[in-house]
């Protein structure tokens, strides 16, 4: 098993990888992620135009404020508030993404520039930070500026505040109806078929993919005829090493698990600070699904085969990325 056949990927040579790697000094300041205006273009501005750009930004901020206060913005049927996501939610997550986890993204070009696509990723980390980082990765790096619509567990939509934010960020319930509707509209949909089994697995089982649900995601992709993009996320497993599970407490609270980490309940809220691991998100080559006949979506054998193919691809990529990784933290 160890010398498994390595499936070739659209692997970039090491030299072409992004050189931008912020210094370690930046980590300390990013411990408390604060909302920060998006300033990617700011350093490139000539110094003379700095005043103008500030004014522009103030004016832009006021326009934004005006629209928000008067309610003149659009949300779609799922409650996705694109403006709020772009301007506020992504800005809140970006420091965590850039400075804290220093996420390295590979193979972003495997997500098609238009039309629907289903991104299937591994799930880990006790809290679903991997989904959020995946969303930032697609949002910030895709050349066509695509937005990822994540499918989330029903628990997300039961919790107050969380459900409101999730809907506004474009997430929706992981069910075939919603996924189908989004894919037919040509959206990029992200799904983590391992679900609670994956995110809540003990630290000892890290990077071992769990069962991929019942493969519902494959039949949804087949029905919509969209490609499946396998995605492997390395680094999320170590942010909260789950070494124990308070099952009784979890049952009382109605959660699927109640994690015990080396820091979590012992240091109180301080234990909620994730470990600053170095992340890599690799998108694999898309698996086309439009070549199958219409009745293929109801063929269980084909479903299992495709599910296994996606699962193996992600697992192999995970192993490969782990071998390349120098350390958990750098």
């Amino acid at each position: 098993m160890a010398d498994a056949k390595v499936i070739p990927f659209g692997e970039e040579p090491r030299s072409r990888r992004k050189v931008k790697r912020p210094g370690r000094g930046g980590r300390r300041t990013a411990l408390a992620p604060v909302p920060e205006p998006r300033r990617q273009e700011a350093p490139e501005q000539p110094s003379g135009a700095a005043g103008a750009s500030l004014e522009q930004r103030i004016a832009g901020g006021l326009r934004f404020l005006r629209r928000r206060l008067t309610g003149e913005y659009e949300v779609d049927d799922f409650g996705y508030d694109e403006e709020l996501t772009d301007q506020v939610l992504m800005s809140v997550l970006r420091p965590l993404y850039e400075k804290y986890f220093r996420v390295e993204v590979k193979g972003i070009e495997n997500i098609p520039a238009d039309g629907g696509a289903l991104i299937v990723a591994n799930h880990s980390g006790t809290l679903p930070l991997d989904g959020l980082m995946l969303q930032v990765a697609v949002h910030d790096h895709h050349p066509a500026g695509r937005h990822l619509r994540l499918l989330a567990a029903d628990l997300v939509f039961v919790l107050p505040v969380i459900n409101e934010l999730a809907r506004k960020a474009g997430h929706t319930l992981a069910c075939a109806e919603d996924a189908q509707r989004l894919l037919e509209r040509g959206e990029v949909v992200g799904v983590m078929p391992e679900g609670f089994k994956g995110i809540g697995k003990p630290f000892a089982d890290r990077y071992k993919l769990q069962r991929f649900g019942r493969g519902g995601f494959v039949s949804t992709a087949l029905r919509a005829g969209v490609p499946i993009v396998p995605c492997s996320i390395v680094g999320a497993e170590e942010i909260y090493p789950k070494i124990g599970d308070a099952k009784t407490l979890a049952r009382v609270l109605g959660f699927p698990y109640f994690p015990l980490t080396p820091t979590f309940p012992w240091f109180g809220p301080l234990g909620l600070v994730p470990l600053p691991t170095k992340w890599t998100i690799q998108f694999g080559e898309p698996i086309p699904t439009d070549g199958y006949p219409a009745e293929a979506a109801d063929d269980p054998m084909l479903m299992f085969n495709l599910t296994d193919q996606v699962r193996e691809t992600i697992q192999h990529t995970l192993y490969k990325l782990l071998v390349q990784r120098r350390s958990v933290f750098f």
Binding site: D77, N163, L173, D178, R181
Partner: peptide, 9 residues
Amino acid sequence: APRDPAVFT
């Protein structure tokens, strides 16, 4: 209900 699909047909 929170556990329903977002859009009802």
